[in-house]
Structures are given as structure tokens and as C-alpha cells.
Computed example of a mutant assay.
Amino acid sequence: MNSRIGYPSPGGIQMHLSIILPAKNESAGLQKVLPGLRDRFPEAEVIVVDDGSTDDTAEVARAHGAHVVGTPYSMGNGAAIKRGARAASGEILVFMDADGQHDPALIPRLLEKLDEGYDMVVGARDGAGQANAGRGLANAFYNRLSSWMTGHRIADLTSGFRVARAERFRQFLHLLPNGFSYPTTSTMAFFRSAYPVAYVPIPVAARIGKSHIKPVRDGLRFLLIIFRIATLYSPLKLFAPVGSAFFLLGAGYYAFTFATQHRFTNMSALLFSAAVIVFLIGLISEQITSLTYQAVRGERRSSDGPTA
């Protein structure tokens, strides 16, 4: 038996399981999480990606039998995810935080859902699982926006607790950012490539140790998630309404100035120009997005085999 066989599916097929934990100064959290993982998945491959920690994160991970992938300096949460996915040998990848928020006992719930034919299953937090009210509101907005973009209900766009088929996930490593928005990017990439995604409600515990999220710096970064959602899925769904808004403003302002001053003003010309430019940017972005996923679609057709 392969030492990395970690989970029997309901159909009786043994799945090779790799559990990946990005960690930066998370020695306290790992002391809680790793024993739980070993108790429930003794044969799974456990990978701790030490993202330039200055504490004994790597030593704690090795002491609990985890394979440590280290970096000489911090590269970011997304970079750690990419390094862990490249190092993993399992057919199924499990991603979870090393700070104690995610309970290893919940992993079977995600795996059982994966066996229903999904390519990715995400643990969806409720309002109580958000770090604070501000982040809860921001995540609710991201969920609604992404649901509108994809046409599918997205219960938790930014959850880092998820399982995915390794073959599918690795197709999008080049798209993943090095920062904190890897969950957003991977989710939208799966939807864009017609890989089915499911959500399973999960409780989330309070983290152990200090959060690495900085409200001002990362708040601005999370605003960029909105644009990543658009550019990763369907840019015209964002740019077309914005361009239409500029056009309507220009038309309205022109009607007002024509009625009051009987002339066409520079402001109307500027608004009309902005409408055209925004629409053209969206059109170009749409073409770039299609080209980005063209290779992925080709890989999927070849892996699925010839059709009758």
C-alpha cells in the first residue's frame, strides 16, 4: 500500500491525499492542528509550507511528522499554496490554515462532497466565522458580486479551507497571486473552466496567535479582488455596465446643456469618450481572458479523451 493513501471514497477507491498548510510564525497553531491531522489521516501526506517564519514553525512541523517546504524569506500566502501544490504527490489536495481555525475533523465532509462529482469543494463560513464585522461585510459583498458574475451561488469566496483534485488545481498555478487572494482566483478559475465547485457549511474557531492581515494595507488589496473577479471570469460583465453609465451620464448632461445653453460641452465629450474607452478595455480584456483559458480547455479535452 502506498504510504500516502489517505482517504477511502464511498465507492471503495483509495484516494491519495495531500494536506497543505501554509504557515508563517504558526508554531502554536501547528501544535494543535498537526496531532489532529495525524490521528484522523495517519497515511496522508502532510505538507507545511514555512513562509519565512522567524519562530520554530519548521521544527514543530517536523516533530509532528510533516514534510516541510521552506523559503528563506516570506513570499506570501498564495506563494506558499503554489509551493505546496507543486510539492504534493496526492491526487486530492486539502488546503487549510495552520492557525487552528479549521478543524481536521471537518475534512471528511468536504471529501464526501467531492465524491459526488465536484472538482473543488470549499468550506463556507457563516457570519460567526468572520474575523470582524468589517471583513464580514466585505466578504458578503464579494460573494454577491462573484455570484452575479458566474451565475452560480458562491457562499464563501475567500475561504482558505478547501479540497480540490490536484490535476485540475495545478492547471491554474500560474494565475494564482502570491498574496492573500488565492482562494478568489482559484474559485473563479474553476468556474470559468466549467469545473464544478460546491460549498459545505463549516464552523470556524478563533485563530491561535496574531493575524497577519493588516486592515489598511490588505483592505486596499482586497479591493483589487473585485477587479480580479471581473478579469478572471467575464470582464465585460463589469466594464459594459460602467461604460453604459458613462454614456448615460454624457447623454443626460448633453440634454441638460442643450436645453439650457444650446451647445455641446467638453464635459459631454469627455463622458462619451470615457464610455467608449471603458467598453473597449472590457472588450480587449474579454479576448485576453478567453486566450488565457484556451490552453486549459485544450488540456481538459485531451484528459477527458475523444468524444463519440
Results as ranks from 00 to 15, higher is better:
4 R>I: 13
6 G>D: 00
6 G>H: 01
9 S>M: 00
9 S>Y: 04
12 G>R: 01
13 I>S: 11
13 I>V: 11
15 M>Y: 02
15 M>C: 11
18 S>F: 00
19 I>G: 05
30 L>C: 00
36 G>I: 12
40 R>V: 10
41 F>P: 10
41 F>A: 14
43 E>D: 15
46 V>G: 01
48 V>Q: 07
49 V>K: 04
50 D>L: 08
57 T>P: 11
58 A>C: 01
58 A>Q: 04
60 V>K: 07
61 A>N: 05
62 R>K: 14
64 H>C: 10
66 A>D: 02
68 V>A: 07
70 G>I: 14
75 M>K: 10
76 G>L: 08
81 I>Q: 11
81 I>M: 15
91 E>W: 08
93 L>A: 13
93 L>C: 11
94 V>R: 03
97 D>T: 05
98 A>L: 10
100 G>I: 09
101 Q>R: 15
105 A>T: 05
106 L>P: 01
111 L>F: 05
112 E>N: 15
114 L>T: 02
115 D>K: 00
120 M>K: 12
123 G>K: 04
125 R>I: 14
125 R>F: 12
126 D>L: 01
128 A>K: 07
129 G>A: 11
132 N>H: 15
136 G>V: 06
145 L>C: 08
145 L>Y: 15
151 G>N: 12
154 I>Y: 00
157 L>I: 13
161 F>L: 11
170 R>V: 09
176 L>G: 03
176 L>A: 14
177 P>L: 00
180 F>D: 06
182 Y>Q: 14
182 Y>T: 07
186 S>P: 01
186 S>I: 10
188 M>Q: 12
193 S>K: 02
194 A>M: 13
200 V>K: 07
201 P>Q: 04
202 I>C: 02
203 P>S: 13
208 I>P: 04
210 K>P: 01
214 K>G: 12
217 R>H: 15
219 G>E: 13
223 L>W: 08
224 L>E: 06
225 I>W: 05
226 I>W: 09
227 F>H: 02
233 Y>S: 02
233 Y>F: 05
234 S>R: 15
237 K>T: 09
238 L>I: 04
244 S>E: 03
245 A>D: 06
249 L>P: 01
258 F>D: 01
265 T>R: 03
265 T>M: 00
268 S>G: 10
271 L>S: 05
271 L>P: 04
274 A>D: 07
282 G>W: 08
283 L>I: 03
285 S>N: 06
288 I>G: 02
294 Q>M: 12
295 A>L: 04
299 E>H: 06
306 P>A: 09
308 A>S: 07
